[in-house]
Nucleic acid binder design. Sequence first.
DNA 1: TCAATAGTGTCTGTAAGACAGTATTGT
DNA 2: ACAATACTGTCTTACAGACACTATTGA
Lengths: 244, 244
Amino acid sequence: MPSHDKGYDFTDYPPFAVTVDLVIFTIIDTRLHVLCVTRGEKPYKGRLALPGGFVHIDETLEQAARRELAEETGVGDTMGHIEQLQTYGAVKRDPRGRVVSVAWMAFLAHDVLLTAGTDAADAAFLPVDDVLNARLAFDHNTIVVDALERARAKLEYTTLATTFLGEEFTLPELARVYEAFWGASLHFSNFARKVTSTPGFVTSTGHTAAPVGRGKRPVVYRRGHATTLTHPILRPSHEPGRVT
Amino acid sequence: MPSHDKGYDFTDYPPFAVTVDLVIFTIIDTRLHVLCVTRGEKPYKGRLALPGGFVHIDETLEQAARRELAEETGVGDTMGHIEQLQTYGAVKRDPRGRVVSVAWMAFLAHDVLLTAGTDAADAAFLPVDDVLNARLAFDHNTIVVDALERARAKLEYTTLATTFLGEEFTLPELARVYEAFWGASLHFSNFARKVTSTPGFVTSTGHTAAPVGRGKRPVVYRRGHATTLTHPILRPSHEPGRVT
DNA sequence: TCAATAGTGTCTGTAAGACAGTATTGT
DNA sequence: ACAATACTGTCTTACAGACACTATTGA
């Protein structure tokens, strides 16, 4: 029990445990995947769960999230994208006691994951549909649903789709990121025109990549400096994101 | 220290305190206000702060937020709008020890506040600019900035602006809600056409209200069933919301 | 009558969506 | 030659923004 001796007492607060849980998205072979672990301890032993763990007493929430991310995937701080999602605090969400969990969402390129050595043998990327249909531990199903909806919405008005790709990428590859998230095939010709005409979204490298199958060589692009889109790339469903 | 006797121990988790803090917005006389309290205890005694308090061991985070909202304003659960904003967990954000705060944002109509009796004499609605310029306790300045940006963005693509008004309202009143948040005068004629042509945004009552000054009687509307807007009402600045 | 408020009508520029057409590649 | 991929061009429709104009009210 911490006593900081500053003229006031702090011994009578309700004792909580605080954890972080991560929804780590990546795209493997045009399909969206989420990192899951199999729990080796009670409670929910043997069940699928999101990676996460207790926040240390001397680290911030973001440090805890990045630490867990590094432990499970091996990627460093500069890779990809991470942001706080929401905090879950139902009274009985953890049978061990009162645990509040700060959920985070991370976007990673899959080729980064291949080079980064992960020693977590119990962790695996599963297709998002399989994760949604599985019975996860705790309230992790809810967290995945919330993260997915938030991620889908953010792709519309940010340039974060590029974080799923390497340093260099082609427009068809970028389009497949959107399609993986939205589950719909978008009109590529209009997509390409929109992306290239948005200032700061992508910049051409001038050279082309190897042809895909028997086709024209696609132009190779890099990320631009823009982070938000004035004119969003809307989902083909034409329905706006449900916002909570 | 809770021991639930389920075959595993839970005594070695780091001890945290969890609080909720509320950014309660309302519009008074066309200006945006935020509820602030003056702290009567250490730390930061005498300083302005956001209303909030410790989460009880047997209540959810949302219950704690709604309890604090009711304590400070006297409004019930069905009034206005409340949503979770973000959680703040810097290591030394509270000098008493390790406190994680779940921030919430609430939208309330001012006339509701007048009828609801509030017994919190230390609480007062202050103009948002004054709050932003004041040195608040803890990291509450950051929380207010984050809440304001989130609120401004949500007005664009939701119908939440109506939560600042009574059951019945006029289009000029609704326009002034947007102007209060965005700090810019919008083109009212286009605004009125857009609002009335958006299905489910507002429904006309058929009758008119008293004239404002020497002018035409405005038509009285009620809220529609829509919650999100397919075609957002964009800020006149034409800059999209900065998203973090 | 005048000024202030609350709209309605109209015009223009821009962007989205559909889709035809062209260029480049492997088989 | 043909099919597959990666674009470019064009057309239509819709909406945003600007602004002129009308309607109603009090001073």
